[in-house]
Design a binder for these strands. Structure first.
Lengths: 160, 160
DNA sequence: ACTTTTTAATTGACGCGTCATCTATTGTCG
DNA sequence: CGACAATAGATGACGCGTCAATTAAAAAGT
């Protein structure tokens, strides 16, 4: 099953072919994600915000005035808590987020986006939307759809 | 092209699903990669090695007795150098890698995999290959192929 | 030949993910 | 009620990616 040299293989300057198309697929996914992350980082850089901070702000905007406890934010990012605490520290320091210990359950800390956070999102969102389009712009709508489907299938196996 | 997400739902929950299929595609890629990374980490954990360290070892094995200068390793991982130096520090400390300042060009540091590194790879590789297959196992070979093609297309745009 | 530029690598600093551990609160049950 | 488990977070430590700045050596320019 010697497969001809693929582009990814060339990019990685690998001397031997992939052992299987599955290995190539997983590497391909990771590599593409890496590229996307890098581009996203560069886009957000002028706004002094990282991709994860951006994600958290979006989640908090979605939560609205009700706010969201620390752990719940982490769940939506599939991130472990320890990271969330410190990420929120930085957002709070920048004045983009506000935290209040919950009176009903004093173990919880409710997090809210501030007006500053809202306006930062308002500034960044349109840029990012256009950008995303350009990133995936080499694909037709149908191709993007099928990409999504394939990736979903891959993730379903994820119970491993 | 507002996709069929009901406007009503969008208004109720400010958490709008996706503005476009392209945004969904990029998020999908990143999410899937995250899952893969997590699983890979777990598989390598018993061997006291991280995914990046594993990658570097594989690259050095590929380089063979000729070895490879630090920067060249970084290029193949698309990682900036600063990280490579320290990653190699850790690999060297564990005895999996050996570094020698190049005599022809004394700026360079040539890196080699050690016997210890080789045998670690020999132990890990088969496990990982089987694992990869399982990760992507929900896909048929043809689906995996088309996934690879779509992702390649996406990365080509990456000059952005 | 001597200065300037470029290249290879290192170091310091910071953000992030993750593990293990710790504290404070709440809940449960005898 | 009082001991004990469960839950929400926080903290310390480590690996990693990345930026900016630094050192050392080679290459280029004059």
């Amino acid at each position: 099953m010697a497969r001809q040299t693929s582009r990814l293989q060339t990019e990685l300057k690998q001397t031997r072919p992939f052992q299987s198309i599955y290995q190539e697929a997983t590497l391909s996914v990771m590599k593409t994600a890496d590229l996307l992350r890098r581009q996203l980082t560069r886009q957000l850089e002028p706004h002094e915000i990282t991709p994860q901070q951006y994600n958290v702000l979006r989640i908090l905007r979605g939560a609205g005035k009700a706010g969201l406890p620390t752990l719940s934010i982490g769940e939506r990012l599939i991130e472990e808590t320890p990271g969330m605490t410190r990420l929120l520290d930085r957002l709070e320091f920048k004045g983009l987020v506000r935290r209040v210990r919950c009176e009903q359950d004093r173990r919880q800390v409710l997090c809210y986006i501030t007006d500053g956070g809202e306006s930062l999102l308002a500034a960044v969102d349109p840029i990012l939307a256009a950008d995303t389009k350009e990133m995936a712009g080499a694909l037709t709508g149908a191709e993007a759809e099928s990409l999504v489907v394939l990736l979903e299938k891959m993730r379903e196996q994820g119970t491993l």
